[in-house]
Design a protein around this nucleic acid. Structure first.
Lengths: 183, 183
DNA sequence: CGGTATCGATACTAATCGTAGCGAAACCCG
DNA sequence: CGGGTTTCGCTACGATTAGTATCGATACCG
């Protein structure tokens, strides 16, 4: 079992959720580039140094924020067709939340050319979803990667370019396309 | 006709092509964030101030670079099926060129929260392709936008995440999917 | 109360974007 | 050749930002 003994010293204040909310709010309002750590800290009502005590960089903070925002994939595990529908709708809903697409685009841009952040992004966000989808859909890894790129890429591009989430009919078209392709 | 009279003063040196090449090369090596204007200027063998005399910002430079790298869409104009194939293969080929995907992701990230750059990106890069595709494919604007988001989003996401262009079989799968959807 | 770790606040370094000003160079015209 | 005009390279600069260092105050434990 997990140890119930507390480490010595002053415990950390439980403001992680508040910081995540402040991060997404700030990124939503100003975009990733202008969402400075100073502003995020101010929006969360804490000191900037506290943020750097918990996350090693701005990119790592935003990544943790995305991991928290996405949460686990709600997959049944057996019915492939329903799984595809559920996964696409899940992705569409999360990416449509304020700030998520901008945060993803920003951390993704920073990760190119920053191997440390790339590692964080891979292990904490991408790999878990890749694994769960590979197991759930019963497809080869190449097929799953193709599937993910189509869904996430399309949704992110739409959100980032227009600032508006995909209309429902387009999400349906995307689902329909993928079910034909995978079925 | 266009005026053939030259304006007075020293003419601009013809290094635009060299600057574009240096920009993509630098972005390819270091990513958008670490590809500073100083480094790009050094790679092109010119002074940084010369770059700012021709393009108002780093984002505008990279956008001009992308416009130059993509060029016009080679569309026949009549056969829809062939047009779809040609457009997808065109996009896949250009986005696979070194630095293009990273440049696109970076300028796209900067554009969120920078209305001026957003305007440049829209008018110089997105609108022309949107218009040409709407005319060529004979589809509603909404359908064309959906089409573009799927293609560009998917290709960009793949390139950005893996650093590798899409394998040929995935490009074929993408084309197949879209032709079914549009046909 | 003593030990330990966090918190807020301030100050600081290193990059980086973008601008200003300068003398030199290139081109045109007379 | 000489004057007018614009670009060029260069240096310096201001503003913003990521990330670090430090210090006194604070919260929890035994």
């Amino acid at each position: 079992m997990a140890s119930t003994t507390r480490p010595p010293g002053r415990p950390r204040s439980s403001v992680d959720a508040e910081v995540f909310a402040a991060t997404l709010r700030t990124v939503h309002e100003l975009g990733y580039t202008r969402a400075t750590v100073d502003r995020i800290a101010a929006a969360a009502g804490i000191a900037k140094t506290t943020i750097y005590r918990r996350w090693p960089s701005k990119g790592a903070l935003v990544t943790a924020c995305l991991v928290d925002a996405f949460g686990p994939l709600p997959l049944a595990g057996s019915a492939r067709e329903e799984d595809v529908t559920a996964a696409v709708r899940f992705g569409a809903r999360r990416i449509a939340e304020p700030g998520v697409a901008a945060a993803f685009a920003g951390v993704f841009t920073d990760a190119i050319g920053d191997p440390g952040l790339r590692e964080i992004l891979s292990t904490q966000l991408q790999d878990p979803y890749r694994q769960v989808l590979t197991e759930s859909l019963g497809l080869s890894e190449q097929r799953v990667l193709f599937f993910i790129d189509v869904v996430i890429g399309t949704l992110l591009h739409r959100m980032g370019m227009t600032g508006e989430p995909m209309v429902e009919s387009d999400v349906d078209a995307l689902i329909h396309m993928l079910q034909r392709e995978l079925g």
